[in-house]
Design a protein around this nucleic acid. Structure first.
Length: 502
RNA sequence: GGCCCCGUCGUCUAGCGGUUAGGACAUCACUCUUUCAAGGUGGAGAUCACGGGUUCGAAUCCCGUCGGGGUCACCA
């Protein structure tokens, strides 16, 4: 039988739809379409605690907004369904049993405490690596009767994959098509991965391998963060006696700061909903994302050709897509260049297209704003400006502070800066719990009380720091819409500005 | 820290043994425009992370060092 070219993306429905998901989806889709293959969407909702239906829906919505549609998936169906892992539990159980029967996996009865003390011991012995290795496993060689006895007592267990341990120097190798080289890892450095959790849900590793095989995935295009666990996956394919797909590990999008860490919401907006509400067009975002990992520039082009080579549609990309041209170094996400590309797409629109686009965008923006939407609407006349002007603070990456606005705090810039610093420290200490309008209100009141700040000055300082203006939407709501991490970095920006006023 | 990956202008990149190291964004200057953008022209900006090799010749191949990132969960 001839092998069909099939790729997939497998996001997990937790939290906001991530720009990284779109990045991976883009390359998967281009790859598939350029080969006349299929692009599949599979929902990896094996984390019972964190997966939500709402998050799943916003993955669908965001990807559809971008035009990154899929040929098979939970919503559109397909011949390899179901496409939601929570609906495939029986399949995983069956396959785990197969591994158990063939001695490739075993039941492990170690408790959380056992694992903790194992790690402590490894740290105490100054072992180079900590983890549940074959040599550390008390459960690996349990006799059949011992296992039976424990099960009878109702002890909870997980199922772990056996890593070959006969040859101390043995290693496993796979070929990475982005880096165009073999990547190897020693067996002795691979821990015995949990396949089935004690809630009898599969882990990512098991579900992913089983599904990729069952869904006939020929090519895996995913993020670089999976490179280290790929040997485990290869081991699993081998344990089942299956062929491995081809692996393409895309390098990760990075924060544009000097360290270039993996792009994260702690430092920058990453939600696709944010980009949409901010007024980036799908074509611009896609074009920009493609540029991050793919270059069409090559030798022998004329000057005219070179000038327009960075502006292209996904259709054009598909037409000439060459996976060998995907770059292997981690690109910094340049919000400024995104803006420039977006401008350029705006200019190429007709007036009619522009109106249609902005109308849709306004509707979406209000939905995105949620409880803030009525406030925005109410201020429309008072501000006598565009609605978007009032919400601009949410979408700008760099503030444009003015001394006049900060003068309305009515205390010296230095004092204002110190006050903001204090507030910021409290935000940092409690970041995870500050996630609602009410929380912002409580925390700010508490800080003001504890430090004896002037109530009015503190609020005005925060308002100007957050929005750049003494006139704004309600403060707590604005801060909540911004999210605590962006509030924190905005205070940094404000403090820098205030200190520059001598 | 162990292991893995990556390393060309500030940023995204071209380059695959011989180039004045090319382009794009940002930046600067000039220009066009009744203004502001856009457009046009030009400039500056990279000892190709560093140190050793191999070679007549290295950004390109090899080794080492350094730097950055990723990963070490009953999360994906």
């Amino acid at each position: 039988m001839s092998k069909e070219f099939r790729v997939r993306i497998a996001p997990s429905p937790t939290g906001e739809p991530h720009v990284g998901t779109a990045y991976i989806a883009l390359f998967n889709r281009c790859f598939a379409k350029s080969r006349g293959g299929k692009f599949i969407l599979r929902i990896e909702d094996t984390d019972q605690g964190r997966s939500t239906a709402q998050s799943e829906q916003s993955i669908f919505d965001s990807l559809n907004w971008l035009g990154l549609s899929w040929d098979e998936g939970p919503d559109v169906g397909g011949p390899y369904g179901p496409y939601r892992q929570s609906e495939r539990l029986e399949l995983y159980k069956k396959h785990v049993q197969q591994l158990l029967d063939t001695g490739k996996a075993y039941k492990c009865f170690c408790t959380k405490d056992d694992l903790d003390s194992l790690r402590k011991r490894q740290e105490f012995e100054k072992r180079p690596a900590v983890g549940y290795f074959a040599s550390d496993s008390p459960c690996r060689n349990l006799s059949e009767s011992e296992v039976e006895e424990r099960e009878k007592r109702g002890l909870p267990f997980v199922v772990r994959l056996k890593v070959p341990n006969e040859d101390p120097d043995g290693e496993i190798t796979f070929f990475d098509h982005i880096r165009k080289k073999d990547i190897s890892r020693k067996y002795s450095e691979i821990d015995e991965q949990i396949l089935l959790k004690s809630d009898s849900f599969p882990t990512y590793h098991l579900a992913n391998v089983v599904d990729d095989h069952l869904m006939d995935i020929s090519t895996v295009v995913r993020g670089e963060e999976w490179i280290v666990s790929t040997p485990k996956h290869v081991l699993l394919y081998k344990a089942f006696g299956w062929d491995c797909p081809d692996f393409y590990h895309l390098s990760l999008l990075r924060n544009p700061d000097k360290n270039k860490s993996k792009i994260s919401k702690r430092k920058n907006p990453v939600s696709l909903r944010w980009f949409r509400a901010a007024g980036y067009t799908p074509q611009a975002l896609l074009n920009f994302l493609a540029l991050m990992g793919y270059s069409r520039i090559s030798e022998g082009k004329t000057k005219e050709e070179l000038a327009s080579l960075e502006m292209f549609s996904i259709e054009e990309l598909i037409k000439e897509f060459d996976p060998d041209r995907i770059s292997s170094s981690g690109p910094a996400f340049d919000y400024e260049k995104l803006g420039v590309i977006n401008d350029s797409y705006m200019q190429s629109m007709s007036v009619e297209e522009f109106c249609r686009y902005q109308n849709d965008r306004l509707v979406y923006l209000m939905e995105y704003l949620g409880e803030l939407a009525p406030e925005v609407k109410n201020r429309f006349r008072r501000f006598d400006r565009e609605v978007c002007h009032v919400t601009d603070f949410l979408f700008r990456m760099k503030m444009n502070y003015s001394p006049q606005e900060f003068s309305k705090v009515k205390i010296a810039p230095k004092e204002t800066a110190a006050m903001l610093k204090t507030i910021q420290k409290n935000f940092k200490d409690n970041a995870v719990s500050i996630n609602s309008v009410a929380e912002f209100k409580n925390v700010i009141a508490e800080i003001i009380g504890n430090n004896g700040f002037d109530n009015r000055a503190a609020h005005m300082a925060l308002r100007v720091a957050m929005v750049g203006s003494a006139e704004s939407l309600p403060l707590y709501e604005s801060m909540s819409a911004l999210g605590v991490y962006r509030c924190i970095s905005r205070i940094d920006e404000a403090v820098t500005f205030l200190n520059s006023l001598s």
